[in-house]
């Protein structure tokens, strides 16, 4: 996978997390996976289709998701309820929108699906034939992994 696809997502995840959570964000070590990747517990999935196709996964533990949603709402949320899920969806929307604007400026044209939230234990994601690039973002509430598997349309 070409690195120019992932950079916009990393940059915008960094910017948006920093802005909405008002906290320090640091980038962990980037890694590449060609087999199944474990999902941390709460994952927001956005699909892409057009000149490039694939998917982006914003992945975090349930505890991290609840804390992030609490900060974004300015109130303590106790569980991953509808409001918390709507909040994580919106976070994924904001990060994706900013990244996609950058990719459109680079000349890539494609459409997005609305984010879908997956929750559960012991989940894995497999993207056949496309390697996934994973960039962990470390925030005071845990980590958010940006998991991108995109390829040019054949």
């Amino acid at each position: 996978m070409r690195v120019e696809y992932i950079n916009p997502f990393v940059e915008s995840a960094y910017n948006v997390l920093k802005e909405v959570l008002n906290c320090q964000v640091s980038r962990g070590e980037l890694y590449l996976k060609s087999t199944s990747t474990p999902v941390l517990g709460v994952a927001a999935l956005v699909g892409l289709a057009g000149d490039v196709e694939g998917r982006i996964l914003f992945d975090m533990s349930k505890e991290t998701a609840i804390k992030v949603a609490s900060v974004m709402n300015g109130e303590e949320l106790k569980e991953l309820d509808d409001l918390a899920k709507a909040t994580i969806t919106e976070l994924a929307n904001m990060i994706t929108a900013q990244a996609v604007t950058k990719l459109h400026d680079l000349g890539f044209k494609f459409d997005l699906t609305p984010p879908a939230i997956f929750t559960g234990d012991n989940m894995e994601v497999t993207t056949a034939e496309v390697e996934a690039l994973i960039v962990p973002m470390v925030i005071p509430y845990g980590k958010v992994e940006i998991n991108v598997a995109i390829r040019e349309r054949l």
């Binding site: 974004m72 709402n73 300015g74 509808d82 409001l83 709507a86 909040t87 969806t89 919106e90 929307n93």
Partner: peptide, 11 residues
């Protein structure tokens, strides 16, 4: 359509 945004603007 997002409950989060509605709440945020409302607050």
């Amino acid at each position: 359509d997002s409950m989060f945004v509605t709440k945020q603007i409302g607050q």
